[in-house]
Design a protein around this nucleic acid. Sequence first.
DNA 1: GGTATGACAGAGT
DNA 2: CACTCTGCCATAC
Length: 103
Amino acid sequence: MQTSSLKESIWQIVAAIPEGNVATYGQVAALAGYPNHARYVGTTLKNLPKGTRLPWHRVVNGRGELSFPINSEPWHKQKAYLEKEGILFMGKGFSLKQYQWQA
DNA sequence: GGTATGACAGAGT
DNA sequence: CACTCTGCCATAC
């Protein structure tokens, strides 16, 4: 897929995350070919069109938390999506590894 | 203290 | 002007 830009690569990787699993920015960035640019993943996702079908809500940071400001609109929305898929976030003994997606 | 992560910002094409 | 890519720094573990 050399015709795809990095953004499209990220798009496909995120879209490949199975339901009930999550991936970290570093994970996606590494799969996209940029193991040291996890920030770019978030920046790119933020720039995605409003009507994207990309399950960006399955992408979380390395601590197993959402990268949005707590109590923000998108924060609640993402958390709701995750819980709906069976991923209970912010748990006391939450283990990211337990949900970490593996290519 | 060192390593790893990040929803940015700035610069280049 | 729009989109892409690289770099620095602060915070958490």
